[in-house]
């Protein structure tokens, strides 16, 4: 199996394009990252930043007819880009599993929770229904669902939102996958339940020792659970580093925007939230140069390269933070000064 030097998931220069009636959508445009077993990568960005598309591409859940995948996605050394579906499906659910945003729509409304778990187990294990049922009840118990025997026979609509997401997690982990992708697993849930679900995911990761990708638009969530953070914008990587690096010294104006628009429980309750002005770009018609420049307060409008050249994802040079990369044309010194003087003083980051 994979070693520390050999990450379980290695995504290299991934590009995802959709053909639509209006033209080609570049949903993901050259994204590279990796996740090791036992580690959590948080992918952060607004809707339309390409984070969900990336995860669907890893699972091979995109529509093969209208989608073009380029680059490499190595799952335990096997490239899944271009892998025929009948082979790829054997990896799905067994080696890599996914938890979706809304468990109410992601679970089949007409089948009992138990039946759906049993089905998930029996796709990859040649066992009798009784054995699968035992396993399913074990999993329901493990994710903290009380009375798993009784709950096994109930339908999704008889579960509360939090319990449904627990059942979804039980189903995704039933085959002990090495890679778990959680696509905004708490967005559809009550705030009080969100923390419980995140705790549960953390516990389970320690127990199952799998690689986890947590997709979210909430930097706060990421700072709690992720080891690494990938900030995406307009289908590209804006900033990538360990959670500590990105939270301590965020380098990309978009990351600053995400931080400033996040309410803080400990900060000044009267402080205004600063939303990022404007909307994410249409991926049909991506702005030239840096995708973020139309919304960037610091963009060099005159003479600067922001509206002409796509910034490269580069390692920080003046501070010694190996692995912390950012795609921004602003000089590094200016970024660090701007962050320390203007952004961190708002009091949101810490």
């Amino acid at each position: 199996m994979s070693t520390a030097n050999n990450p379980y998931l290695q995504v290299s220069n991934l590009r995802v394009k959709f053909e639509t009636h209006d033209g080609t959508v570049k949903a993901v445009d050259g994204v590279t990252f990796s996740v090791e077993k036992g580690k959590t990568l948080g992918i952060v960005g607004e809707s339309g930043s390409g984070k969900s598309v990336t995860s669907l591409a890893i699972m091979g859940l995109h529509n093969p007819k209208s989608t073009l995948l380029q680059g490499e996605i190595l799952v335990d050394g096997r490239n899944v880009v271009g892998m025929p579906d009948d082979k790829l499906r054997l990896l799905r659910g067994r080696d890599m599993a996914m938890i979706f945003q809304d468990p109410l729509t992601a679970l089949h409304p007409f089948y009992t929770i138990g039946r759906q778990l049993v089905e998930a187990y029996r796709v990859h294990h040649k066992v009798t229904k009784a054995v699968a049922k035992k396993r399913a009840i074990e999993m329901l118990d493990r994710v903290g669902i009380p009375q798993p025997q009784r709950r096994f026979g109930q339908y999704p609509h008889e579960f509360s939102g939090g319990m449904r997401q627990r059942a979804m997690i039980a189903m995704s982990l039933i085959n002990d996958p090495n890679l778990l992708i959680a696509d905004e697993p708490t967005t559809a849930l009550d705030v009080t339940v969100q923390a419980q679900i995140l705790d549960l995911l953390n516990d389970l990761q320690r127990e199952f020792h799998s690689a986890v990708i947590l997709i979210t638009h909430d930097l706060g969530v990421v700072s709690q659970v992720a080891d690494d953070v990938l900030v995406m914008y307009g289908g590209r990587v804006a900033e990538y580093g360990t959670a500590q690096q990105v939270m301590k010294l965020p380098q990309h104006p978009y990351t600053w925007g995400l931080l400033a628009s996040m309410p803080s429980l400990r900060g000044d309750p009267e402080a205004d939230l600063l939303p990022i002005k404007g909307n994410p770009p249409s991926l049909l018609n991506v702005p030239p140069g840096c995708v973020f420049h139309p919304r960037c307060r610091y963009a060099m409008l005159k003479g600067g390269p922001c509206d002409r050249e796509v910034p490269e994802l580069l390692q920080l040079r003046t501070v010694d933070e190996p692995g912390h990369t950012v795609a921004c044309h602003l000089p590094e010194r200016q970024r660090i000064e701007t962050y320390q003087e203007e952004i961190s003083s708002v009091g949101v980051a810490q």
């Binding site: 799905r92 067994r94 729509t105 992601a106 679970l107 089949h108 409304p109 796709v123």
Partner: peptide, 25 residues
């Protein structure tokens, strides 16, 4: 529907995805 995507994510083959999951709904 999302639940059809879930069925694919589980690794089910084409036939049960269409008949057991989609057709029933």
């Amino acid at each position: 529907e999302d639940f059809v995507r879930t069925a694919r994510a589980k690794g089910l083959a084409i036939a049960p995805i269409y008949f057991r999951h989609a057709l029933r709904a």
